[in-house]
Nucleic acid binder design. Sequence first.
DNA 1: ACTGTTTTGGGTATGTTTCCCACAAAAGAG
DNA 2: CTCTTTTGTGGGAAACATACCCAAAACAGT
Lengths: 160, 160
Amino acid sequence: MSDSEILLGEFRRTIDDRYRLSIPPELADQLHKEGSELVLAKERPGCLGLYNSTPWQGQLDEAVDWVADKVDAGKLGGQVDDLLTLGRLLSTRHCEVQLAGRGRLVIPEGFREFLGVAPGDPVFVVGAAISVEIWNPPAWVSYLEDRMPEFRSLLTQLSE
Amino acid sequence: MSDSEILLGEFRRTIDDRYRLSIPPELADQLHKEGSELVLAKERPGCLGLYNSTPWQGQLDEAVDWVADKVDAGKLGGQVDDLLTLGRLLSTRHCEVQLAGRGRLVIPEGFREFLGVAPGDPVFVVGAAISVEIWNPPAWVSYLEDRMPEFRSLLTQLSE
DNA sequence: ACTGTTTTGGGTATGTTTCCCACAAAAGAG
DNA sequence: CTCTTTTGTGGGAAACATACCCAAAACAGT
């Protein structure tokens, strides 16, 4: 059960001249199987994350409600700046998308620059357990060099 | 039958034009008999490991279940980031494979560069007790020079 | 409404993979 | 020593997937 719900795999794809990119079927099926909408998020420069919107929406609503309650209650204290920042990030960070025909994702304006790709460029599509990520190749390589040494300790840490 | 419990042996093979390599029957039989699927892993530059997937799957399920419980309990905290990281590393380090006809393994894209082989190059196929490893010859030689002196102490340490 | 521009969908080519089968070398039996 | 069987490597052809390209559709401005 749970084993087949983990999104895994690394694939090389190229960005269309119209900023479209085909998601590998094994990942797309799993993301889309619930029939729900998808959410594209700016994870970090050079990396976009593609989530199933239902779990995502739940967490997000929770966070927003929590902040809204605080605002209503008037107990923001000195956290106004933080609130403003959070609002800005919430506004720009994600966007609802859907896979077009042939399992193709159109990368929206604003996300293109963040991903740092031009039409015709290659990217890596990577399964990240609960999401599918699109990586700019240099960012991916550099990330791996950085984090790969942690692998074994992470696995054992999360296993016990 | 203690002879069939652990994978042992050193064999010289060559990678053909299509990045195929034949696994010696005595190793292939043992790997394939217990479970269905196999997992190929990037062990270290110049070395790939071939595992029976069931142990891996178990360990991974454990990790994911652990995090899933925390998520359900509402205390995700920084654990989501850890899960994402683990997923990414798993995606690039491991890959499900199966032996093609004649017990041959096709080395997938991405693993070729890591192994550092070109079509026609020789490799060593080595039994590593619980896995079968594919070594780039220079890496193998250098590894042996490095670790062979430990042999006797390792043996006594592990047998008592 | 018309026209120029952008987006969406899908046919098709090209390169890759997969499934076989053939041959050759090596190992084992008589 | 020779014949038989097993094993390793090569290659052809079919199947598949990806990405390029063009046509239809949607949109917007005039």
